[in-house]
Structure formats: C-alpha cells, structure tokens
Amino acid sequence: MKFGVLVFPGSNCDHDAYHAIKHIHNIETTFIWHKEKELGDVDAVIVPGGFSYGDYLRSGAIARFSPVMNEVVAFAESGGPVLGVCNGFQILLEARLLPGTMMANEQLRFTCKFVHLRCENRQTPFTNAIPDDTILNIPVAHGEGNYFAENDLLKELEDNNQIVFRYCDQRGNISHDSNPNGSAANIAGICNRKGNVVGMMPHPERAVETRLGSDHGKLIFDSAISHLSSV
C-alpha cells in the first residue's frame, strides 16, 4: 500500500499530509512533484493544501494545468481514490473532477480555527471508518472556502449522496452560525458520483495527534487505509 502526496510551488501542507500517513499511520508515502508525468505505483493520491502557484489567478486555477494533473484525472477516472484538502479541493474543482466552485469567504477575511463537521456519506474511501453520530473536530484555514453551486446542482448533490461533510455545531446541528465561510448548504466536502474522489476544506492532516488539539483527522486516513486493504 502506497500513498502519493502531490507537491506544487506554494504547497504548504504536503509535509503535514506526509507526516500523517507515513509517521502516524506507518504507511509508505511518497512526494510527487507537479512536473511529473507519471504517478508511479501509488494506490491513493492526496492533493494537499497551501497556495499553489500563489493563487495569483484564482485558487487552484494554474495548478490544474500542471503535467501531473493529467495523471491524477486518469487515475481518478479509473476509480483510484483521490483526496483534495483545502487548496487541493479547489484544484479538483478547477480540474472538473468535482462539481461547483469556490468563492471568497462570506466575511471577506481569512479564517483559521477549529470547526465541527458532520459526515453525511460514510460510503467513500475516506469516510468508511468514521463511526455513526461522530462529530469531527478539525481545523480550517482558508480565504476562499465558500463553496457555491446553483440550486439544480445542489439538488443533484443531495440526490446522489455527494455531500460528504457539512459544517455543524458540536451537537451536529446545521446552522448559519456553524458555517465558517458561507458555503451553500453548509457544505464542507463533496465527492464525485463514483465516490472515489473527495474534496474537503478542513485539514484532517492537521488533526492527527491530540497534542495538536484533536486526532479526529486520523479517521479520514484510517478510512483510506481500510478501503485499500479491502480491494
């Protein structure tokens, strides 16, 4: 079993993701530079957070054209598990591996804090090990995390069980007060129709040790490991 962590100019959560998988979960992990034209023998791909290419044009818009993304698209279309975190989620949206778009946070400022998440779909490779009724405590850190989709797309996401995470309070209640960025329907993460590609704005790799404030992020990687062990 082997995970690949992409690295773009401006990535700053690649080492966090590597640490979470390699050192906390003891799973073989490798970095994959954005100019690579092959993913190698990896079984899962992590598209990490940060500010790829400085987000100078639009978050994720330039990274989408990196050579490695052609391979990520092919890997995803073949059923390979792909997780995009924060800027990685934005890149997956730009690459059209996931539907919708990101806008500036509703309050027009960078948000960095712990939030609560309710898992709405435990059938994906990255959520299958999350116990029922568990409310996750995981940090966010973004300025453009306001997920937007037209009403027709929101209905489609609901109907196809593609909403994976929603922002909530510590009891699991969905409200505007529990929404850190104004995302439509309190959406914090979604998946594609097949369920093998997941994007989420919160950072599970920053919540894998209790000394960091929470270890709930381990459940995301536990899920991926469990999935890969069963296929």
Score class of each variant (00 low, 15 high):
K2F: 00
V7A: 03
F8G: 01
F8R: 00
G10N: 06
C13S: 07
A17M: 02
Y18R: 01
I21L: 11
K22E: 09
H23K: 14
N26E: 03
I27D: 01
I32V: 06
I32C: 02
E38G: 01
D41H: 12
D43Q: 12
V45T: 02
V45S: 03
G49F: 08
F51Q: 05
D55N: 05
G60I: 00
I62F: 05
S66K: 04
N70T: 08
N70H: 10
E71H: 08
V72R: 09
V73R: 13
A74D: 04
A74Q: 08
A76K: 05
E77G: 01
G80Q: 06
P81Y: 15
V82P: 00
L83S: 02
L83P: 04
C86F: 13
F89L: 07
Q90G: 05
I91S: 03
L93V: 11
L93A: 08
L97Y: 06
T101F: 12
Q107N: 13
Q107T: 08
L108Y: 10
F114M: 06
H116Y: 14
P125S: 15
I130R: 13
D133M: 08
D133N: 11
I135E: 07
N137S: 12
I138W: 07
V140T: 12
A141L: 11
H142M: 13
E144V: 03
N146Y: 15
Y147R: 14
F148P: 12
N151G: 11
N151F: 02
D152T: 10
N161Q: 14
Q162I: 03
I163N: 13
R166Y: 14
Y167H: 11
C168M: 04
Q170E: 13
Q170I: 06
G172C: 04
S175G: 09
S175A: 09
D177R: 15
S178V: 03
N179V: 11
N179C: 12
P180N: 15
G182L: 10
S183A: 15
A184Q: 13
I190K: 10
N192T: 03
G195Y: 03
V198T: 11
G199I: 10
M201F: 10
H203A: 10
P204C: 04
E205C: 05
E205K: 06
V208M: 11
V208F: 08
R211E: 02
R211D: 03
G213I: 00
S214C: 04
H216T: 00
L219A: 11
L219I: 09
I220P: 07
I220V: 14
S226I: 02
L228I: 04
